[in-house]
Design a protein around this nucleic acid. Structure first.
Length: 674
RNA sequence: GCCACUGUGGCUUAGCUGGUAGAGCAUCUGAUUCGUAAUCAGAAGGUCGGGGGUUCGAAUCCCCCCAGUGGCUCCA
């Protein structure tokens, strides 16, 4: 009998009979109670049942490792398909991958509702408990086609993915087999801790023109405890949702009658926004930006020149047409379609809500002759723009139809480009640091080498792309190059922040643009006496105030740092006797620009604390006999910790300094945790 | 825009298979003046998202709109 030498991760080499399974070898390494669900054989992930025929290296893939969870989730998707097939005989499974938080599977079937998930989940658990072995079957293309002849989707995948003549594998568990490369768990029993979370729809192969499929989402964990933990985390995440907190903390309101995706900033929310704007304005001034203001609308011709109209027509609010023209058109019986045609051809004019600020800023640049001595010219504005997002896409503050960008446009020479890009990036970093935002990544969007949709000379692109890379490099955080992610007019750097639910939001962006200077024929006189074309940089470190505040609410779970807290101190009296002192303290704090709320009502102290806690002030200031006597205050922090007898003067000094320095969380009461 | 689900006073919510709305918190009015997560009593507040239909009768059934949620598609 021949033998094989197997090398373990720690370098040990052991001999086994040829054909020994990976699973047996892993039992040898880790003992029979190991928690591996697959193996890595010569660097390739395989099933535990895979036999070893020649010398190899091996390591176990633990179920709770990233790769292990991925396999577990993928296997759970198969189990889901098996359950659905058992319950809905007419259903056709299509694809079912593992995703970040779980798995899904798409089926061509009649729509089902969330109520049906319980039934399917029960079936899954029932099948899991049957301890069905999951086996890998190698098949030729002809065999696969025969096996899946009932399912045109699988046939399409076979024809698409398989090399002509090459076979693939099927994974069989009980009476259900699925086209798949694997690897998978050895038995369905590993998949008992599963929960189906939602049902929705998706298009076949992600294409809107294709038929809609029923997509079922689920999560799976190796143990009951892990599943409970994950479910608990999902609950916690929901509590942080900015849409819920926005209501609880009275930060913003969206009104049906005002319109979808249009944010009404309430007084408390406006404070957060205002503070952020002041903060950024301060840094902009220091970096040599000029503040400008521009109107919310502009003529259609402006956007014809910029290229935003009619190219982006679907994602804009319809144009505003002058009254007389509107009347005439309606009298002539002009249809909407005809109207739209007339606008496109430029036969009639009107105004548009601005979808972006650049054309307006460009016109400020072009309003006077520029020389190289004027550059870089940096124009900044908190500019409100309007975009017609699809109704199904609108959500809270993070996806809206009207929003204010912390926008700026830099007009620079080729030579200044690299430095200016870097300057923009540094600003973003200052902001993120002050807000204690660490969970973000940087994406450098480059040209797709195979596409010719880009404008501008390739030598300039090379230079600009290099400038973006260099800038990202200097940041010292994780960054990736993403070919094909560039705008058609230039490369860009995006800041992508992760929210508590794990969704990623693009916030800040820095984009290099060769296109608009060309379209608007911008010029400056160089030191050589010749006219040159400037390069533009678009940048918005927060992205939009709406989205940024939305993400920020979740980031802080509504517990803002003191400088951003809408009402920083809530003063609470113990009884009527302390009313006068309470107002005196409030006055004193207001003199130092502290935002104060006084509750001198006749509720009990316990009740008041309960009520005020909901609004998450940085501090509750409790005032009673003791405090009144020695002109002190007692503080209660958000977590319930408290200190008493702090002299009023001392309190004011510490508090104002905490605000001034923008300390990322309240710090006046010891041992606080956020 | 597409699919599924949801929509009851400011907020949270009860209301089974149709008989014409109940509660808690908040609000207001009294009483209470109280040391760190709900003091007591009373009052006011809803044409049940909007419109149409079926029915003797609709918050409950049907249709159309509007809005929200989860996804898909999209995101200059």
């Amino acid at each position: 009998m021949s033998t094989v030498n197997v090398t373990f991760a720690d370098g040990t080499v052991n001999s086994y009979a040829s054909g020994v399974s990976c699973g047996d070898v892993i039992v040898d390494i880790h003992g029979s109670k190991h928690s591996c669900i697959a193996a890595r054989l010569n660097g390739v992930d395989v099933d535990l049942s895979r036999p070893i025929q020649s010398d190899a290296s091996i390591e176990g893939i633990d179920v709770s490792s990233t790769d292990g969870l991925h396999i577990l989730r993928h296997s759970a998707a198969h189990l889901l398909a098996q359950a659905v097939m058992a319950l809905y005989p007419g259903a056709l499974p299509t694809i079912g991958p593992a995703i970040d938080r779980g798995f899904y599977y798409d089926f061509a079937m009649d729509p089902i509702s969330e109520n049906d998930l319980k039934t399917i989940e029960k079936k899954m658990i029932e099948l899991a408990r049957k301890n069905l072995a999951v086996s890998r079957v190698e098949m030729s293309e002809a065999e696969l086609k025969n096996e899946f002849s009932y399912n045109p989707y699988k046939i399409e995948i076979i024809e698409d993915k398989l090399e002509a003549g090459g076979g693939s594998t099927m994974y069989q568990q009980g009476d259900w087999g699925d086209l798949c490369l694997g690897p998978h768990v050895p038995s369905t029993v590993k998949l008992q801790h599963v929960r189906l979370t939602s049902v929705s729809s998706a298009y076949w192969r992600g294409n809107q023109d294709n038929e809609q499929l029923v997509r079922i989402y689920g999560i799976v964990e190796p143990t009951k405890e892990a599943l409970q933990h994950t479910l608990h985390q999902m609950e916690e995440a929901k509590k942080r949702d900015h849409r819920k907190l926005g209501k609880d903390l009275q930060l913003f309101h969206i009104d049906e009658e005002v319109g979808q995706g249009l944010i009404l900033w309430t007084p408390r929310g406006s404070i957060v926004r205002q503070e952020l704007q002041e903060f950024i304005r301060y840094h902009l001034t220091r970096q040599g930006y000029h503040q400008v203001f521009t109107p919310h609308i502009g003529k259609l011709d402006l956007y014809r020149t910029s290229g935003h109209f009619p190219y982006y027509q679907e994602s804009q609010y319809p144009p505003l047409v002058e009254r007389d023209l509107m009347k005439k058109l309606s009298e002539d019986g002009c249809t909407c379609g005809e109207l739209s045609n007339l606008m496109q051809t430029g036969d009639i004019d009107g105004y548009m809500l601005k979808p972006m600020n650049c054309p307006h800023h460009i016109k400020i640049y072009a309003s006077q002759p520029r020389s190289y001595r004027d550059l870089p010219l940096r124009l900044a504005e908190f500019g409100t723009v309007y975009r017609w997002e699809q109704s199904g896409e609108i959500s809270g503050m993070t996806r809206v139809r009207g929003f204010t960008q912390d926008d700026a446009h830099l007009f620079v020479t080729e030579d200044q480009l690299a430095d200016e890009v870097l300057g923009c990036i540094e600003l973003v970093q200052i902001i993120f640091e002050h807000l204690d935002m660490k969970d973000y990544r940087v994406r450098v969007g480059l040209r797709d080498p195979d596409s010719n949709k880009y404008v501008g000379e390739s030598s300039k692109w090379d230079k600009a792309e290099q400038a973006c890379r260099n800038a990202a490099q200097k940041l010292g955080v994780a960054w990736t190059e993403e070919p094909g992610e560039a705008a058609f007019y230039g490369p860009k750097i995006d800041f992508v922040v992760k929210d508590v639910i794990g969704r990623e939001w693009q916030l800040g962006t820095v984009q290099v643009d060769y296109n608009l200077p060309e379209r608007f024929e911008l010029k400056y006189k160089g030191s050589d006496g010749e006219m040159h074309r400037p390069v533009m940089i678009h940048r918005a470190p927060f992205g939009s105030m709406e989205r940024f505040c939305g993400v920020l609410i979740e980031h802080f779970a509504g517990k803002f740092p003191t400088w951003l807290t809408p009402t920083q101190c809530h003063i609470i009296t113990i009884s009527e006797k302390h009313k006068a002192y309470a107002h005196e303290v409030a006055e004193e704090l207001r003199k130092h620009d502290v935002r104060v709320n006084v509750d001198d009502g006749d509720d009990t102290i316990g009740k008041k604390i309960r009520v005020h806690r909901a609004l998450q002030p940085a501090y509750m200031v409790i005032l009673g006999d003791g405090e009144m006597e020695d002109r002190s205050v007692s503080l209660r922090a958000r977590n319930g910790d408290q200190i008493s007898g702090l002299p009023l003067d001392e309190f004011i000094v510490s508090l104002t300094s905490e605000i001034e320095q923008k300390i990322p969380q309240p710090s006046l009461v010891p041992n606080q945790e956020r």
